[in-house]
Amino acid sequence: MFLQQLINGLTLGSIYALIAIGYSLVFGVLQIVNFANGSIYMLGGFLTLVLYNKFRINFLLCFALALIINGFVGFCLDRFALRHLRQKKATKLVGLITTMGFATVIENFVMLFFSNATVPYPNKIDFGSFSIGSAVVSSTQVIIFLVVLVLLLLMSWVVYGTKVGKAMRAVSQNADAAKLMGIDVNGVIAMTFILSAVLAGISGTMVGMYYQMIDFTSGFSIGMKTMAAAVLGGVGSLPGAVTGGLIIGVVESLGASYISSAYRNAFAFAVLIIVILFLPNGLFGKEKVTKV
C-alpha cells in the first residue's frame, strides 16, 4: 500500500513541479511571486476544454491552441501591467498585488462561462492500467510523469544550454548589468512569463484529464502549494522547483493517508517551514554573494 501511496504522491508531485518551475523562473528574473500563476494554470485547463467542446476537432490541436492563448495571457500580464510598473520604478509590492488582481480577473472571466459548476473533463490519455505488486498504476499517471520529465529536460536545456537561457540567468543575477551587455531585458522577462504560462497550462490540462473534472477554484489552492514547493526547492533554481514539487506531493499524499486527510495541506507547509528553518534559501538555493 505504501507503494501505491508513493506512486499517487509522485503523480501529484510532478504536477506541482511543473507549476513550481513557473514560479521559480519568474521570481528569478523579476524577484516577485507571480500570484496569477495558479489561475493561469486553471485557465489553461479550461481553454483546452472549451475549445474541444466548442469545435469538436482533434484534442491535441485544441490543446496546442489553448497553450498558445495561455502563453499570450502570460505575455499580456507582463507587457500591459508589470512592464509599466517597472518603467515607473514601482516597488515590488505593487507588482505582487497586480498579479493578484490579474488572478481575480482571470477567475471571474472563467466564471462567466461556467458559473460555478464542476465540469467533466475527457481523459484523452487513458489507456488502461497495470499493476506493480499490489499497486495499480494508470497510463494517465505514467504519461504525466513522462511529460513532466521531458519538459524538465527541455527547460534545463533552454535555461542552461541556449543563449536565451543564459540571458535569463544573467537578468536574474543582475538586470542592470544584463542591460549593459545589450540584452533585451524586457524581452527576456516576457519570454519567462510566456514559458511559465505554457507550463502552467500543460499542467492544468493534465490535471483535468487525471481527475476527469475541473472547476475554477482549482487555481487558488494549488497556487499556494506550488509556491511553497518553489520556495522549498530554492526560488530561482530549476532542479529545486522540481524537487520541491515532488516532495510536497509525496508528503501530502502520505500525510493524508497515514495521519489525517483533513490536514493534508498543513503537512505540505509544515515541511516547507522545517526546511526553511535549516536552509533559509531552500534546498538548492544559493546565498547571494555580493562584493564591492
Binding site: 544573467a170 543575477q173 543582475n174 542592470d176 548589468a177 540584452i183 547571494k288 554573494v289 555580493t290 564591492v292
Partner: peptide, 16 residues
C-alpha cells in the same frame, strides 16, 4: 561597483 554576474564563471561573464 563592477556589477559582475556573481554566479557565472569569469569565462561566462566575458562571453556575456
Amino acid at each position: 561597483g563592477r556589477q559582475v554576474f556573481p554566479d557565472f564563471s569569469v569565462y561566462d561573464n566575458l562571453m556575456l
